[in-house]
């Protein structure tokens, strides 16, 4: 669903000439709910400069940030250098090596390919992507026809739409549209909530089962060490010392085991190219499992601490 752009808002001018100025991109970028924003000019066909009759790809003037590319000239010099960034797919389509070569706008200027742009998920529909950074528009001029805004969270989309709409008030309604992924975002929230609920049930079930298994294992461990614990009591260990010993040993083992498990799972997910949980979540799972094991151990530990050393020392 995220690939479908649950966090995106798109402003489009539908007239013959672009109506959106780069200043609008700059203004939107200052809104705290915005993760990133980029503006595109009208599509213009390009070919590889060496193959004027070769396959054509749509190129867009761009202003803002696109994945790994800051499509905004930072100095006046940069603005005068004719540079373009191509996605891997665009380079393949044009018959150019990745991140290199020269392209030419049909009946227009040539641009040197400066590198590879990796389109983020929400710009996948723009593939094959060719971007030509454009400088800020002079006052009273507009060069952009589309502005794509990425909100920080799907929950922010609706509010962001209400924040952005007034910025378009001076533009003619019939030629400018603002579309958002609000419905998708709402659906995502609903599904996310359901998944969270299921995940919570699974986590609770895992913790409950872990507690029961830990309890049985630690009980067996304590029974197997009756003589050891009895000797410790006879030599001067207090009940609290015995409880701390048993719980501490179990907690340490559980912490090591759950840390290793978390590292293994993270590595496996990474190798499978699957989304990796946040470090805070992984840490919470490790702490949760350790605390569960310690809690489970406290019952047999208390049992062990309250056993009669006289009996325990007589265990063969």
């Amino acid at each position: 669903m995220d690939q479908q752009g649950t966090r995106t808002l798109v402003i489009q001018s539908t007239g013959d000439s672009p109506l959106l100025a780069t200043q609008l991109v700059d203004t939107i970028a200052t809104i705290p709910l915005v993760e990133t924003v980029v503006g595109f000019g009208p599509v213009r066909d390009v070919t590889a400069a060496a193959l004027p009759d070769g396959t054509r790809v749509g190129a867009r003037l761009a202003y803002g940030v696109i994945g790994n590319v800051q499509a905004t000239p930072r100095t006046p010099n940069e603005a005068t250098v004719q540079l373009a960034w191509l996605s891997m797919q665009a380079s393949r389509t044009l018959g150019l090596p990745p991140g290199a070569g020269t392209i030419r706008i049909i009946d227009g200027p040539e641009y040197t390919v400066a590198g590879v742009v990796t389109p983020p998920d929400y710009l996948q529909s723009f593939e094959p992507l060719v971007v030509i950074p454009t400088p800020a528009d002079p006052h009273g001029k507009a060069s952009l026809s589309t502005i794509v805004i990425l909100a920080k969270s799907p929950e922010d989309v609706a509010f962001l739409g209400k924040t952005v709409a007034p910025l378009l008030s001076e533009l003619p309604d019939e030629n400018v549209s603002l579309s958002s992924s609000e419905r998708l975002a709402t659906l995502r929230q609903a599904i996310g909530g359901e998944l969270t609920k299921q995940a919570r049930v699974i986590v609770l079930a895992v913790l409950a089962i872990s507690t029961a298994i830990s309890l049985v294992i630690v009980w067996g461990f304590v029974l197997g060490r009756r003589k050891d614990l009895g000797r410790r009591r006879a030599l001067g260990a207090t009940r609290a010392t015995i409880i701390a010993l048993v719980v501490g040993q179990v907690a340490l083992t559980a912490a090591l085991a759950s840390t290793m498990g978390a590292l293994f799972c993270t590595a496996t997910l990474s190798m499978l190219n699957t989304q990796i949980p946040r470090p805070s979540y992984v840490m919470a799972v490790v702490v949760g499992l350790t605390a569960t094991a310690a809690l489970a151990a406290s019952v047999p530990a208390t049992y062990a601490a309250n056993r009669d050393p006289l009996h325990e020392l007589r265990v063969p």
């Binding site: 006879a234 030599l235 001067g236 260990a237 207090t238 009940r239």
Partner: peptide, 10 residues
């Protein structure tokens, strides 16, 4: 128990 344990230890 703690006091008796200390006496045992010492």
């Amino acid at each position: 128990d703690a006091a008796r344990s200390r006496i045992r230890a010492w």
